[in-house]
Simulated scan of single mutants.
Amino acid sequence: MKLKTLFLAAALVAGSPVLTAHAADIQSRLIRFGYGLNQDSNQGRAAKVFADEVAKLSDGKMKVRAIGAAALGSDIQMQQALIGGAQEMMVGSTATLVGITKEMAIWDTPFLFNSGEEADKVLDGPTGTLIKDKLKDKGLVGLVYWENGFRNLTNSRHPVATADDFSGLKLRVMQNNVFLETFQKLGANAIPLPFSELFTALETKTVDGQENPFNTILSSKFYEVQKYLSVTNHVYSPWIVTVSKRWWDGLSADEQDVLMKAAETSRDYERKDTRDEADKALAALKEHGMEVNVAGPDSVEQMRKTIAPVNEQIKKEVGAEIWQAVQDELAEIRKQGS
């Protein structure tokens, strides 16, 4: 008996994961985790990593049911379900949260980041955390940011190489004022639609085009209804893993810790997976017959100048303090990298 006691004490000191899981304050729970893309997308793969990690860390007590293809509704519908406590978790665009937490609009700033690595440092840094934590006052808990990627343009009419080429295009944009104003400034007819309705809208020519990262364009099979792909990298688009605060507040500290650690593991996996897949996705889109053009530096600069008033509006919306904090962080990151 003495030997068994000594063994258990040694296991505790060593941090035995099995003993910790059994000893922790963790109950049996079924967690619905909604997302918008298909199961075989980068979003779907990362959702599975999250589910597997939760099961491992909770010794199988907490089970995540990942439900994709917008089966639980659009991002906005799922956000409302989380706020009301009718759904536990989801991952979705930060852009659709702007109506709930205005500071999220900072991530919609056109041409904000030069690389994914810059985005990681800012999103995971002090300002990214500050903005994420503001969701708590609105009934949501933000865990981590995933990557959707740099957004690029597709349409069924013609290549977009300059700002002038946007003129007259009917473009689906997210239900977000910054996106609406950006493309309106460029001369497009910007039409807000939920992602779940997008493929049908493109197929029926209700809209001419849309903008999303390469991975989403491929996994959603937009190449079946779109001919032209223009590489503009006009916005870096994050996703964010969120939890119903009403539900979160009923969890033990150990259960919250399991979800946070699993979310961080899924974040690191998802970012690497997304970046690895981006080049492959672009090559695959070409193989599927899409005509690809790259907007050159002069054209991008022209676009920047055209949409400059949008940046001023974002600064006003999120507040000068938040705006400047992001700019200062980016300046320091670029200084260190130079």
Rank of each mutant, 00 (worst) to 15 (best):
L259N: 00
N42A: 08
V18E: 01
G289E: 11
G84F: 06
W247L: 04
R157L: 12
I83Y: 03
N212L: 14
D208C: 12
D75W: 03
F150I: 05
E103S: 13
D254M: 11
Q175N: 11
Y145M: 01
S219K: 02
A69R: 09
A69F: 08
V64G: 00
L202R: 01
K4F: 06
A295W: 00
L72W: 11
L251R: 03
K4H: 03
T162I: 05
E312H: 15
G44P: 03
A308D: 10
S230H: 02
S115V: 03
T265S: 14
L218G: 00
A55L: 00
A188V: 13
Q87M: 08
V292L: 08
A55K: 15
D249L: 07
D108M: 13
Q327R: 12
P159S: 10
G168E: 04
G168H: 08
T94A: 08
R304V: 14
Q256K: 12
G139N: 01
V122S: 13
G128W: 10
G84N: 15
G319M: 13
V294P: 05
V235R: 03
A71W: 07
D40N: 07
G337V: 05
T204V: 15
E181V: 11
E224L: 14
T129H: 06
N311L: 12
W248E: 05
R246N: 11
K48M: 05
M174F: 07
V241N: 00
A161R: 10
R275T: 06
Y269K: 02
S156Y: 09
S252G: 07
T200M: 07
N212S: 15
Y228F: 09
S156K: 13
K221T: 04
A325F: 09
F33R: 06
W247F: 10
A278E: 10
Q87A: 10
K61Q: 11
L169Q: 09
A284V: 02
A14F: 06
V241D: 02
E264Y: 15
D165I: 03
R32L: 09
W107I: 06
F195M: 11
A95W: 00
D108A: 11
D165C: 05
R304Q: 09
I333L: 06
I76A: 11
E332G: 09
Q175K: 08
M89C: 05
W247C: 12
L153A: 03
K261P: 03
L153S: 01
T274I: 14
E117W: 13
Q313Y: 08
L153P: 02
S230D: 03
I100H: 09
E117Y: 13
K121H: 02
N176K: 01
F195H: 07
G142C: 02
A253K: 09
D298H: 14
V141I: 08
L82I: 08
L112S: 01
E203H: 05
A283K: 13
A46F: 07
S196T: 05
V292W: 05
A14G: 09
Q39A: 05
T204W: 12
S266F: 14
L12Y: 04
F166A: 11
D254W: 07
A295G: 01
G84I: 03
E317Y: 04
I83P: 01
Q39P: 06
V13K: 00
K132D: 06
G84A: 15
A283I: 01
A201H: 15
E312M: 14
V18L: 13
P192A: 12
D120Y: 07
G34L: 02
P159C: 07
K56L: 10
G99H: 10
T242F: 08
K63R: 10
K56P: 06
E88T: 09
K286N: 11
E203N: 06
A201S: 11
N293G: 02
